[in-house]
Design a protein around this nucleic acid. Structure first.
Length: 259
DNA sequence: ATGGTAGTGCGACTA
């Protein structure tokens, strides 16, 4: 089962590029972030005619996540537990049924800039809720994947110019420590585990020729539970589509699991 | 310190 995560930065502007990628990459499951659309406006027919079922958790203009799956989805839940007043659409869960069941969590973690400020406080609080959800899921001892745009550069090797991010919410020590507290629960960063070297990125800013200069960062991650990590046979980053027409500023990251 | 680009949706915010 091929599971991908892709921050598309707006479904309206990305419908063509998304469909082209689905047709060529053929993921069984795609977890999307920043659909920037309400559920009713999401072009689900475009996706369904390619054999995917579609579950969205959208909002107007900002954020928004979705799950596309060629295999049946069950028990869909929207919203990260832990704050009833949080109205931002950043979390969706479902169980996909392959040879065995796999719990999918698609997430769009808050950016957190500027620092300091309420947006950074929200980011750190959201990460603590994410950690609590991971602890809950680990109790079941069933395989799960938490994948999406984490807005976290885990290590200096995950940025072409780490010095440029020193005061940024994506790279501050407190942000990286919060991410590490989550992985330290026993979750595997799929790309880091299988491709241990530097220079793998998932995001290149639209500005200042970042793509042309390969000034990238790795902020889109697939975190695998122990039972899911045991099933991983391959993983990668579809870097080339950043150079295609009307690209997102992110590219897909994916993992193949034997189930 | 600023501005550089892009998306949504038509002003201003987010990234």
């Amino acid at each position: 089962m091929k599971i991908a995560s892709f921050n598309i930065n707006g479904i309206k502007a990305r419908a063509q590029a998304l469909c082209d990628w689905l047709d060529s990459a053929q993921p069984d499951v795609a977890l999307l972030q920043e659909i920037k659309s309400v559920d009713e406006a999401f072009p689900r027919e475009l996706i369904e005619e390619r054999g995917y079922s579609v579950e969205t958790h959208g909002q107007k203009s900002f954020n928004g996540v979705a799950i596309l799956s060629k295999l049946p989805l069950e028990d869909v839940r929207r919203g990260l537990p832990g704050d009833d007043n949080d109205e931002q659409a950043r979390w969706i869960e479902a169980t996909v049924i392959g040879k065995t069941a796999l719990r999918l969590c698609g997430l769009y973690l808050p950016n957190g800039n500027p620092v300091p400020g309420p947006k950074y406080d929200y980011k750190l609080a959201w990460m603590e809720r994410l950690r609590a959800r991971a602890i809950e899921l680990l109790k079941s001892e069933a395989p799960f994947v938490m994948a999406g745009d984490y807005n976290i550069i885990p290590q200096p090797m995950d940025a072409a110019k780490p010095e440029a991010w020193e005061k940024d919410a994506l790279f501050l020590p407190e942000s990286r420590a919060a991410f590490q507290r989550i992985t330290n629960l026993g979750l595997t960063d799929a790309i880091r585990a299988r491709h241990p070297g530097a220079g793998l990125y998932s995001f290149w800013d639209y500005q200042a020729g970042a793509w042309q200069r390969n000034n990238g960062i790795r902020i889109d991650h697939l975190l695998l539970s122990p039972q899911a990590a045991d099933l991983m046979t391959d993983c990668g980053i579809d870097k080339e589509i950043r150079g295609y027409d009307k690209p997102s500023d992110h590219v897909p990251v994916w993992a193949e699991l034997d189930l």
